[in-house]
C-alpha cells in the first residue's frame, strides 16, 4: 500500500506544476486550469494526510476543497467571460493597467 509520503510528494509536485502554469501562462483560462491543478495537488495532499490519522477528516476537507473549486469555477469563469467581453481577448496582459 502506498504510503502517505508518496502522496505528499505527488501533491507537492502537482501544486508546483500548477503554480508554474498560473505564473507563466497568459491565457486566462489556462491560468484558471492551473489553479485547479493546484487544488488537485491540495486534494492529493489532504487525502495523503488523512491516512495518517484515524477518521476521515482529510476527506471531508477534500470535499470542502471541492466546494471551493466549484465556487471558483462558477465565479471565475463568469469573470473570465466578462473580461473577454470587454477586451475581446483572453490575454491577461491586457489587464495590466489599473484603469478599465
Amino acid at each position: 500500500m502506498p504510503d502517505a509520503g508518496a502522496y505528499i510528494v505527488l501533491g507537492a509536485a502537482l501544486f508546483a506544476v500548477g503554480m508554474v502554469g498560473f505564473l507563466a501562462r497568459r491565457n486566462l483560462i489556462v491560468m484558471f486550469l492551473s489553479t485547479e491543478i493546484m487544488l488537485q495537488g491540495v486534494l492529493v495532499n489532504l487525502v495523503g494526510f488523512n491516512r495518517m490519522y484515524a477518521g476521515v477528516d482529510g476527506q471531508v476537507f477534500g470535499l470542502f476543497v471541492l466546494v471551493i473549486a466549484a465556487v471558483e469555477a462558477g465565479l471565475g469563469l463568469g469573470l473570465v467571460v466578462l473580461l473577454f467581453r470587454r477586451k475581446g481577448t483572453l490575454d491577461s496582459e491586457v489587464w495590466a493597467t489599473m484603469h478599465g
Partner: peptide, 28 residues
C-alpha cells in the same frame, strides 16, 4: 492567440514554484 504562444517569465516562475514546493515536499 499570440498570448498562448508566449509564456511569461517561465524561468522565474519555475524557479519560484519548484523551490517552494521542492523544499516543502522534502521537508514534510
Amino acid at each position: 492567440s499570440s498570448a498562448d504562444q508566449r509564456a511569461r517569465e517561465p524561468m522565474l516562475a519555475i524557479i519560484a514554484s519548484f523551490v517552494v514546493m521542492g523544499t516543502i515536499a522534502g521537508r514534510v
